[in-house]
Write a protein that binds this DNA or RNA. Structure first.
Lengths: 109, 109
DNA sequence: TTGACATATTCCTATATCGGAATGTATTGT
DNA sequence: ACAATACATTCCGATATAGGAATATGTCAA
């Protein structure tokens, strides 16, 4: 078999650096495609395709305004990702504490 | 061109569901490959390959113990992911607040 | 209706996997 | 040294992109 489809979930969608850039850019406020193209210096078809993926997994919302399409990041859809990563928080805190303890032991000697 | 290499960063590495399962499993304590194979019901070569990817991006640590290789999740490497997703927290909180406000307005009428 | 503008989609190609099967390598026990 | 155990790697085939170029679609303005 081959790899899982990118459109399957948020994890795959944000694996692409360009799509993360787009999400960052659209977090503050909605923007038309043309502005994304200019701001991020990407080809228009490329932006449209990435937006399509982001839209399919619900990471962005769209609405039409005349001939423009206004996109904005749907932060809600990023929560599961944050939540998953967050389950490891206690572990890295614990790891950091051990590093700190060792440093203090060394200091004591 | 084609897609970015999976081994390039943590985002790509965790895009694969099986690798997330492995990370979850190895978070609590280190385990030999064989136990991962049994616990997650995956083929041994498959597990080894996923571990290789995780190791290349620093998401797991390894040490040898006799003929076993003991792997454990390096939670530290997940922090950047958590941090990135966390930058959107204020937005989803804001969105939720608006939803709540609308509900209350409706209630008032 | 026609033309211009803003986006989306399609077609094509090179490449990056993922899984399965087979094989290679390292370490231990006898 | 040799067999057994525990993993890792390689080779293969099917599929999923990402990007570029060209084209299609939708909307507004005159």
């Amino acid at each position: 078999m081959a790899r899982a489809a990118t459109t399957s979930d948020a994890f795959n969608a944000v694996a692409e650096p360009r799509r993360r850039e787009i999400l960052n850019y659209l977090a503050l406020q909605e923007r038309p495609v043309g502005e994304i193209v200019d701001a991020l210096e990407m080809e228009q078809p490329s932006v449209s395709k990435h937006l399509r993926v982001l839209r399919d997994v619900g990471l962005v919302h769209v609405r039409r305004d005349g001939r423009q399409m206004l996109y904005r990041t749907n932060a809600e859809a990023i929560r599961p990702l944050h939540a998953w990563a967050g389950t490891f928080e206690r572990y890295w805190k614990h790891q950091l504490m051990r590093v700190k303890e060792r440093a203090e032991e060394k200091q004591a000697r």
